[in-house]
Design a protein around this nucleic acid. Structure first.
Length: 447
RNA sequence: GUGGCCGUAGCUCAAUUGGUAGAGUCCCAGAUUGUGGAUCUGGUUGUUACGGGUUCGAGCCCCGUCGGUCACCCCA
């Protein structure tokens, strides 16, 4: 209840009926408010993503965050849909889900217009995703995610390009080559290894799960877990996983999947991408990836984790019937990237989008400075005027707090002489200018 | 869904074995009715997350709920 009402007994009586608790001001569990400073960072992140994606010729698409629940049930296990997503029944009895990822949506869209789209297709999207689980570092209930996909190319050209965009993305965020590592593996190579030592399909799923954890658990636990599933065949498997190269040697360079992987790494190397690491234990879930998978890893000791990743997922189009469409792509979330930028000191400094703040000095009226502001906006700069009518010092202080780079105080003198002292709040320097010079001065100031 | 740690002023944090809440900062006013960050003076910070319980007495102890954080599960 508001204090004002508490003072008045009559009001108290009236509002007792409502007797509402004070509303909580914090955001819903696991989601974020974006105050201007936060929005600035999000906008920075998405602008780098957008710029990079478009520099490779990718077109932006979008879709509603709400989808029929079947879209996810068909693809992933029933458990993920019921326990890890926001799924509910709408008023019309339809079961719907807030999208936890973009891939099913984009596959749906591509399939629907397959005949009129010109392949290969290069698409990207920056959209929010939802998942229902307890928040932890790098994983909230809502996050924004860039999705980069290339459809209609079945050879390694697609993988090479998509990984190059990921690498370029990191470079455009200011990362150096040794800040991160690109880990690559092939699901098909794992399959070949499994069949070469007689692993049954029924054992594969559990085995992949353990292999994926190899770097997170001790080698003893790893060996024991493997042994538990495949018994005495584990010796051979563990031996192969001891040294990365051993797996490739075991299958031989005539193996088409090995050939493909080596070709991809050589291609990337020729682009000047050197921070690549063949990582046989890289699995990435076990849902729809069919061949090459890759992950971008943060190499800093404090934040050793996967930043984002993706791979080839040709089979997902089976869901919608019809022909298979080859597809390679990845998803990159804003939360992990934000952590990465913070960790590596790559966060941009906040700056207001307002270029100039006009302080009002009495007896000049708000109307008079409004006219000036309006003319300046027409000349191409963003201008805010004071409405507080407080002391000049306070007006300047507020402008500075809002990180507005320039201010000008307008009073009788300025109106009479038509000369304005444009003050740079960071340096404290003032320049006396005519009105028509102001816009150009600010635009070329580099602030 | 499970577990550890945590929750005191807008923010960062104090408060002795349980004895009715404090500092810095921020904010507001003034010194300074046309120029910010400095200094000085004065001023407001609060149902100690919420709800129960134990006690003469709870910020402190116990139970529950909610939230934060980290991890597990899972990973899109």
């Amino acid at each position: 209840m508001i204090d004002l009402f508490v003072l008045n007994p009559l009001s108290v009586r009236i509002f007792l009926m409502a007797d509402k608790k004070k509303l909580d001001t914090s955001p819903y569990k696991g989601v974020r408010d974006f105050y201007p400073e936060d929005m600035y960072v999000l906008n920075y992140i998405t602008s780098v993503m957008r710029k990079t994606a478009e520099s490779f010729g990718y077109s932006e698409y979008g879709a509603s965050p709400i989808e029929p629940a079947e879209l996810y049930k068909a693809k992933s296990g029933e458990e993920i849909v019921s326990e890890q997503t926001y799924t509910f029944t709408d008023r019309g009895g339809r079961e719907v889900t807030l999208r936890p990822e973009m891939t099913p949506t984009v596959a749906r869209m591509v399939t629907a217009k397959k005949r009129e789209l010109s392949f290969p297709l290069r698409w990207y999207s920056i959209s929010n995703m939802f998942r229902y689980e307890n928040p932890q570092k790098g994983r909230l209930r809502e996050h924004y995610q860039l999705n980069m996909d290339i459809f209609g190319v079945s050879g390694l050209d697609a993988e090479a390009e998509i990984i190059e965009t990921a690498w370029q993305m990191m470079k455009n965020f200011g990362a150096k080559d040794d800040d991160f590592q690109i880990r690559i593996n092939s699901r098909l190579i794992l399959d070949d290894i499994f069949s070469s030592i007689g692993i049954k399909d029924s054992e594969k799923t559990v085995l992949l799960k353990i292999i994926d954890k190899k770097d997170k658990i001790s080698s003893d636990v790893f060996a024991d877990s493997i042994k538990k599933i495949i018994g005495n065949r584990s010796n051979e498997l563990l031996n192969l996983f001891e040294v990365n190269q051993r797996i490739l040697d075991h299958l031989g360079t005539d193996n088409p999947n090995v050939k493909n992987l080596i070709g991809l790494i050589e291609r990337l190397d020729s682009f000047g991408i050197k921070n690549i690491q063949y990582t046989p234990s890289l699995v990435r879930g076990f849902d729809y990836y069919t061949d090459i998978v890759f992950e971008i890893f943060d190499t800093s000791p404090e934040n050793k984790r996967s930043l984002f990743g993706g791979g080839r997922y040709d089979d997902i189009f089976n869901l919608f019937g019809g022909d298979v469409i080859p597809a390679v792509g990845y998803g990159m979330g804003d939360v992990t990237i934000r952590d990465f930028l913070t960790e590596h000191g790559l966060m941009p400094e906040y700056k207001s989008n307002t270029d100039l703040f006009i302080c009002q000095v009495s007896p000049v009226s708000t109307q008079e400075i409004s006219f000036l502001a309006s003319r300046l906006r027409a000349s191409g700069i963003n201008v805010a005027i004071d409405l507080s009518k407080r002391k000049i010092g306070d007006q300047i202080k507020n402008a500075d707090k809002m990180m507005i780079p320039f201010i000008v105080c307008v009073g009788e003198e300025e109106i009479k002489n038509k000369i304005y002292k444009i003050k740079n709040l960071k340096s404290g320097k003032e320049n006396a200018l005519e009105e028509k010079e102001i816009s150009n001065f600010i635009k070329t100031s580099g602030v």
